[in-house]
Simulated scan of single mutants.
Amino acid sequence: MSALDALLAAGRAAAAELMREQITLRASVDDGFDWGTGTTTPGTGTVLYSGLARVKPVARLGKEVDAGERNVTLRQYTISVPWDSPAPPERVVPGVLVDVDASRDARLVGLRLWVTGVEYGSTSTAWRISAEDRS
Rank of each mutant, 00 (worst) to 15 (best):
A14N: 06
R112T: 14
D5E: 13
W127G: 01
L7P: 00
E90K: 15
D34L: 02
L97M: 11
T125S: 05
A3C: 01
V96G: 03
I79N: 06
G32N: 10
D99L: 10
G43A: 08
A16S: 10
G38I: 04
V47A: 10
E119P: 00
M1R: 13
L25N: 02
A6K: 15
T125I: 11
Q22A: 12
S124A: 12
D5I: 12
D99H: 05
L25V: 11
L74N: 04
S80W: 06
L61T: 14
Y77L: 02
F33D: 00
V72G: 01
P94G: 10
N71A: 15
S28D: 14
V118N: 03
S124M: 08
L48D: 05
R60I: 09
G51P: 03
A27W: 09
V93H: 04
W127R: 11
L61D: 14
S85E: 06
G36E: 13
T39H: 12
T37I: 05
P89I: 15
A53E: 02
L108I: 04
G95Q: 07
S135A: 12
V93N: 08
R75M: 03
D101R: 14
G68F: 05
Q22N: 10
Y120P: 00
R20N: 10
L4W: 10
D31M: 02
L25R: 09
L108D: 01
K56G: 00
R107Q: 11
G121C: 02
G62C: 02
A27C: 02
R60Q: 15
I79L: 07
M1V: 08
W83F: 14
G68T: 03
A102F: 09
R26T: 08
D101G: 01
T37C: 03
A14D: 06
E64G: 03
S80F: 04
G51D: 03
L52N: 12
L108Y: 09
G36W: 12
T46W: 05
A67M: 13
T39K: 14
P57H: 08
L111C: 05
M19L: 05
D105Y: 10
R91I: 09
A3G: 00
R70D: 04
P94E: 07
V100T: 06
